[in-house]
Design a protein around this nucleic acid. Sequence first.
DNA 1: CCTTAATCGAGACGGTACGTCGTGTCTTTAT
DNA 2: ATAAAGACACGACGTACCGTCTCGATTAAGG
Lengths: 203, 203, 203, 203
Amino acid sequence: MDLDNPAKRRRGRQLEEAILDAGWQQLLDAGYAGFTIDAVAERAGTSRSVLYRRWPDRDALLRATLKHGLNQGRRDPEDTGSLRGDMLAALRQANSTRSTVAPLLSVFMGAYYAESGRTFADVRADAFGEVAGRSVDIILERGIIRGEADPARLTARVRTVAMDLFRHDLLMTAAALPDEDLVAIVDEVFLPLVRPAGETGFA
Amino acid sequence: MDLDNPAKRRRGRQLEEAILDAGWQQLLDAGYAGFTIDAVAERAGTSRSVLYRRWPDRDALLRATLKHGLNQGRRDPEDTGSLRGDMLAALRQANSTRSTVAPLLSVFMGAYYAESGRTFADVRADAFGEVAGRSVDIILERGIIRGEADPARLTARVRTVAMDLFRHDLLMTAAALPDEDLVAIVDEVFLPLVRPAGETGFA
Amino acid sequence: MDLDNPAKRRRGRQLEEAILDAGWQQLLDAGYAGFTIDAVAERAGTSRSVLYRRWPDRDALLRATLKHGLNQGRRDPEDTGSLRGDMLAALRQANSTRSTVAPLLSVFMGAYYAESGRTFADVRADAFGEVAGRSVDIILERGIIRGEADPARLTARVRTVAMDLFRHDLLMTAAALPDEDLVAIVDEVFLPLVRPAGETGFA
Amino acid sequence: MDLDNPAKRRRGRQLEEAILDAGWQQLLDAGYAGFTIDAVAERAGTSRSVLYRRWPDRDALLRATLKHGLNQGRRDPEDTGSLRGDMLAALRQANSTRSTVAPLLSVFMGAYYAESGRTFADVRADAFGEVAGRSVDIILERGIIRGEADPARLTARVRTVAMDLFRHDLLMTAAALPDEDLVAIVDEVFLPLVRPAGETGFA
DNA sequence: CCTTAATCGAGACGGTACGTCGTGTCTTTAT
DNA sequence: ATAAAGACACGACGTACCGTCTCGATTAAGG
């Protein structure tokens, strides 16, 4: 890559990181169609054989790249003082980063996990990282303590409903959602389902 | 195909139907990777040029094929006598047919509509056809008449929440959902959101 | 072709002329590769079916076009007062018109007449028209009368030698020849072969 | 070709030879129309990309194939003891091999060299190879030594006149010439032009 | 004058070859 | 041993023509 730079050849872990970074950038820049072995190799400043030594084919590289990219920069969810605020903050944070790449998840994760025989929960955990799943749990934990959420109503389905609807819309539009859609998810679906019975107004 | 076949050449609408049928079958048999212009053309007993004359590229053909295939055999939703029963029946019907192909929707519809600048509502309508959208409306209409649904609570988000969650899971797993997941969607999310305030138990 | 021009449709002979003219222009403009049925039809302001009704395939049209084009504007050879002058004039005249298209002759005439089982003489006559063959005869006739050519030496081979060498060079270079090449053909080959024995200088 | 063939893949020069051989055979078997990239690749037991890596397009491959094929099996010209015999032998040898392919030369070499701006001499040398040009020189050298040819008369035009006329007829007829035409070239044109002045009869 | 048959003009259909690009395998050279 | 470079064999892509076909519109000719 560098012309006369005698910089040592990268190897092993270090090289792998560089490749996945390059792949992620390539994915963001050129989309699925532009996610080519050649393009990624060139962007990473290495050669195709190096990639093929690590991943058997393009799809495997794509999965590794998605996982690598999506799990960058995870943070614990913000504490805004209210369940509604926390949930909205989490959705807005997600909405600001994932848009373009998200649709790929459904195809590749879907196909891959279908073959691997894993469960739906695993799919979610692996695709969006451990942190993502735990974010909602943390937010709900705080809500329970504040008395804004009723533990009895928090089935698995209800716990993930906000993120699932967000993700659904993302998958269907391949673009960041308008903020009012996030608000609608929280106010019209999430809060009514988790709020202790009897409460009716918004917090 | 047969040079000596005195059967008239197919043309126009008739030919197009045959192509889309062939495409749909090819998609079910060989998946996205096997959805090749050549393969579809051969399966339809025509030639590649005929396809390229109608759709500019593979993706356009794929979108047309998806729409064609997904909108086959639509029927008005069954009337089971209760809102819960109607909704479950609709989900079960959908669950029995769409599984393998659904994930493709997110990528291609997503990408397409992102470019075309259409709205989310349009996306849904076009991808899943008019009937799909109306099914839920019909079911809810009946529910309102029976007193099982509160018109005041039926925002756009709430109206589609059941189908959206179903679709989300389908997209993420690329497989038919277990029946208990459908039940959970109806009992834990849908009914609590649409039921007139005050009612608490399951119907 | 014309927008609202109610000008009568051309038919029969008239239409055929227009097509061959268009073909000839197309050949000169775009060469062999650009000599397309579509291009000729469009240039002639008609449609492909009309061409296919007259010639079975592209090669047939090409042959017809070549014959049409090459036999335009034939004139009797100039009388310059000397055999050398006449021959040079004939070569120069030929050199000024045929250059680009000539190489096609060898392929298509060659192939066509090979199949048709005609003789070499016929080939030449048909490809270059009756006039071309007669031109040399006329020139030589005058030369004999002037005493510049010896009838005893004028075998078939010798009669055509100048035109053949000219045509050979044309075929090999696909371009008009430099004038000195024409002079060399006349002075170094043609005149020494036809001149009555004993004469040595140039006329 | 064979996936399981443990024979090493051919590469570089060796592969190139095989391709050109295959191309030459294809040309002889199927003519210009049958000289297809696919056909040549298949015949050579390789794939289209390999050809495109070496030649930019079909015409370039055709030119390379012609050069390759025409320069196979060149030998130094036979010494028959007389200028007439040597020249006739050379023409007969040429006549026995080149017939079918020759016409292609005019179109492709012509077009190519027209673009490349090379000289006529280069055209000839490249198209027919070094040896072809030298053959005549060798024959004439011997003739001069024997006293059958006059060096003073051997201009460039005269030196090549026999081969040029032969080639001309070949180009026009696309078939091997009858032997009497070769004899006519030698006896009626070649010998009269090169023979020392004063000699008149045939050797 | 009106009908009728032939031709024109337009364009879809079923093919084939083109030249490009990406894949996954394999080989070679250098670090 | 692994990196880097790149050739090989394969196959799909989208384009451009080919030669065949169908169909409505126009036109010349005949009853």
